[in-house]
């Protein structure tokens, strides 16, 4: 057995030596020979190779995709976080810009208004459904007292009914329990502004002979309620003149949108538009 093995080895070694010598002696022919023998073998080996290669490609692709997805997912999350952050910043900036604009307008109005006013922020609504009121963030500490009038850039809001050190409650003109004297700007007829439970405003006790008509603006008369004369209240939309009644009643569309109240001015010292401007303390000393 051992002898036969060593004999085969010898034959194989001799064949290898012959092939090598052929390669060196006849390089072109030997290459052709190798190719001729190798082709069928290559075809046979190509099948599992292709199979493995395909599997490898798939695994590689899946792996690459997984790894890439992991990276993309992380990148995606990062980008989402950035978008959320930027969205938040944009919303903050928009809110700040809007607040800035509102406060700027309020300041300009405060500077132009003849009355002395204190700016306050609306921080809440009446704690019950029974009254149309708002809660302000300023109180007696800021000089706000009960019965002071409250206005905005667009018109009359209501009057202060409760005041603590740091907050106050305002009864809106849309409340049925509120009454503010007002006059029709065109005819100069006086009446009383009252609210309704539907959140509307009604002007009562308009003289029967008044020529009031829809579209007439209504302003405060300055007689009661801590308001200066001439602050806009609203516009008359409908007039009710009943048989046998001594007065007319008119529905008024308020100029102020009470659902969007954010900042208001509390009139601490009411002064009409046509009243003389107050003399500054420095000028008083030197007449």
């Amino acid at each position: 057995m051992l002898r036969s093995t060593s004999g085969t080895r010898r034959v194989l070694l001799a064949l290898c030596a012959l092939l090598l010598s052929l390669v060196f002696v006849l390089p072109k022919q030997s290459r052709m020979l190798v190719q001729a023998i190798g082709k069928p073998l290559a075809d046979i080996v190509a099948f599992p190779l292709d199979l493995l290669s395909s599997a490898d490609r798939r695994v590689g692709s899946v792996w690459d995709r997984y790894v890439a997805l992991r990276q993309v997912q992380e990148e995606n999350q990062q980008l989402r976080r950035e978008i959320e952050f930027l969205r938040g910043q944009a919303a903050d900036l928009r809110e700040m810009a809007a607040a800035n604009q509102r406060l700027g307008e309020l300041l300009r109005f405060q500077a132009k208004a003849p009355s002395q006013t204190v700016a306050a922020r609306v921080v809440g609504r009446d704690a019950t459904n029974w009254y149309h009121g708002v809660v302000l963030d300023k109180g007696e500490r800021d000089g706000i007292q009960v019965e002071m009038g409250v206005v905005t850039l667009t018109g009359t809001v209501g009057r202060v009914v409760k005041s603590s050190a740091s907050s106050s409650v305002v009864l809106l003109i849309t409340d049925p329990n509120n009454a503010v004297t007002a006059l029709i700007q065109r005819t100069r007829d006086e009446g009383i502004i009252e609210g309704t439970y539907e959140g509307k405003v009604r002007m009562k006790y308009i003289p029967l002979l008044s020529t009031v008509r829809a579209g007439d603006p209504v302003v405060t008369s300055g007689l009661t309620g801590g308001f200066p004369k001439g602050v806009p209240v609203g516009t008359i939309t409908h007039i009710q003149k009943d048989e046998g009644e001594l007065f007319q009643t008119a529905d008024v569309q308020p100029d102020v949108d009470f659902t969007k109240l954010e900042e208001v001015l509390v009139v601490t010292v009411p002064r009409s538009v046509d009243a003389p401007a107050p003399v500054p303390p420095a000028e008083k000393k030197n007449p």
Partner: peptide
């Protein structure tokens, strides 16, 4: 009591 403090109503109904 607290509700009355933040309501425009007079008195202490709440």
């Amino acid at each position: 009591f607290e509700q009355d403090l933040f309501s425009a109503g007079e008195g202490w109904t709440n």
